[in-house]
C-alpha cells in the first residue's frame, strides 16, 4: 500500500496490513449553475478488515456523497479510493464493474432505490443474474429469510405494496445477495421500527462475524451508530472533524461539534422534557457548502471559536489523553 500522492499522508490513516478500504484526500465537487458545491473536501480515512466505521454528521454534510464516491457513483473529483490496495478511481469501465461487486451499498431512500415495475424476486436476484451466479433461487430465498421477509408471500409483489421498512429490508437483501466484502450502509435502519432495527443490526453483526464483512455505516441515530461501530468518524460540512474508537468518542468527545451532536439526542425520559443538559445547543444554520467559512468550517457555530479559528484551518491531531490510541480531532482547541 504505497502512497504516491504528493500530499503528506494524513495522520489518521493507520499503518496496518489489513486495511480493506482507504480514502485519501477525497474531494467531491458538484457544479450547480455557476457555483461549485464542495460536498466533500479532503476526507481521508481507512477501514480495516471486519471493522465497522460509523459515519455521522449534520444532514447535508456529505456522508452519502462519501459513500457514493467510494462506489464511484459518481467518481470523486480528486483523491483516491483504495479497495484492497487497488485504486478504484483509476480503473476503467469493465475492470471497475468487476471489482465493484465486492463493494455494495444500501442507499438512503429505500423506496426510491427499488424499481417500481419489477418484482421483489427480480430485484433481489439482480446482481446474481448480472453475474450469472449458480443457484439463484436458493440464494434469493436465503437472503430474504435472513432479513425477515417471507419469500413465498413477497417474492411476486412489487415494491409499492410494501411499507417503508419492508422496502428497506428488500434493499438489504439485494445488497447481501452478492456476498460483498465491503458494505456501505447509508442509513439502513432509519426507516425501521426499533424492533426490526434491532433485528437488522443483529443481522449485520452476524454477517460481520460470519463473513468478515467490513462496513461503513452512515446513520443519524447516535445510539445505533455506537452499537454497530468499532470506530466513528464525525463529519461537518464536507470535512472530517473527529475520528476514533466509538467508546472513546462517546465517552469524551474532543471536537465541539461532536459534543453538540451528542447533546442533541432526544431524551427517552418524558419527565426530563425541556431541561436537556447544560451544553448549549447548536445555534444558527449549516453554512452553504458552496461558500464555506474560512479556517475552521465549524467556527460560525462553535461556542469555543477564537480569532485563530477563522485564519488557520485546523489539521488532524492525536487527542492527547484519549482512552484509546487512534483518536484524532481537527480542532485548535480540543475539549
Amino acid at each position: 500500500m504505497t502512497n504516491t500522492s504528493e500530499q503528506a499522508t494524513p495522520l489518521q490513516l493507520r499503518n496496518r496490513d489489513d486495511i480493506v478500504l482507504r480514502l485519501e484526500h477525497l474531494v467531491v465537487n458538484f457544479k450547480v449553475g455557476k457555483q461549485t458545491v464542495q460536498a466533500v473536501s479532503d476526507v481521508s480515512l481507512d477501514v480495516a478488515l471486519g471493522e465497522t466505521l460509523g459515519l455521522v454528521g449534520e444532514s447535508g454534510c456529505g456522508k452519502s456523497t462519501v459513500g457514493r464516491a467510494i462506489m464511484q457513483l459518481p467518481p470523486p473529483s480528486a483523491g483516491r479510493v483504495l479497495f484492497k490496495g487497488q485504486d478504484l478511481s483509476n480503473m476503467s469501465g469493465e475492470a471497475l464493474r468487476q471489482t465493484r461487486t465486492g463493494l455494495q451499498m444500501i442507499f438512503q431512500d429505500p423506496i426510491s432505490s427499488l424499481n417500481p415495475r419489477r418484482k421483489v424476486r427480480d430485484i433481489v436476484a439482480e446482481g446474481l443474474q448480472i453475474w450469472r451466479r449458480p443457484n439463484q433461487d436458493a440464494r434469493v430465498r436465503e437472503v430474504m429469510e435472513a432479513v425477515g421477509l417471507d419469500p413465498d408471500t413477497v417474492a411476486d409483489r412489487r415494491p409499492h405494496q410494501f411499507s417503508g421498512g419492508q422496502c428497506q429490508r428488500i434493499c438489504i437483501a439485494r445488497s447481501l445477495a452478492l456476498d460483498p466484502d465491503v458494505l456501505i450502509c447509508d442509513e439502513p435502519v432509519s426507516a425501521l421500527d426499533v424492533s426490526v432495527q434491532a433485528q437488522i443490526l443483529n443481522l449485520l453483526e452476524d454477517m460481520k462475524q460470519r463473513y468478515q464483512l467490513t462496513m461503513v455505516f452512515v446513520a443519524h441515530n447516535l445510539a445505533v451508530v455506537k452499537n454497530v461501530s468499532d470506530r466513528v468518524a464525525v463529519m461537518y460540512l464536507g470535512k472530517l472533524c473527529e475520528i476514533g474508537n466509538a467508546e472513546a468518542i462517546y465517552a469524551r468527545p474532543a471536537h465541539p461539534y461532536t459534543r453538540a451532536l451528542l447533546a442533541s439526542i432526544p431524551d427517552m425520559d418524558p419527565d426530563a422534557r425541556g431541561q436537556q443538559g447544560k451544553i448549549p445547543l447548536l445555534q444558527g444554520e449549516l453554512p452553504s457548502p458552496a461558500n464555506p467559512p474560512s479556517g475552521c468550517r465549524f467556527r460560525t457555530r462553535c461556542p469555543n471559536a477564537q480569532a485563530r479559528c477563522a485564519e488557520v484551518e485546523p489539521v488532524m491531531q492525536a487527542v492527547a489523553d484519549s482512552m484509546t490510541p487512534d483518536h484524532f480531532v481537527a480542532c485548535h482547541y480540543p475539549l
Partner: peptide, 13 residues
C-alpha cells in the same frame, strides 16, 4: 429492543 447510548458497542440487541 432500543439500543441505549450508554451500552457498550456491539451489545447484542
Amino acid at each position: 429492543s432500543i439500543p441505549r447510548i450508554n451500552d457498550a458497542s456491539h451489545t447484542r440487541l
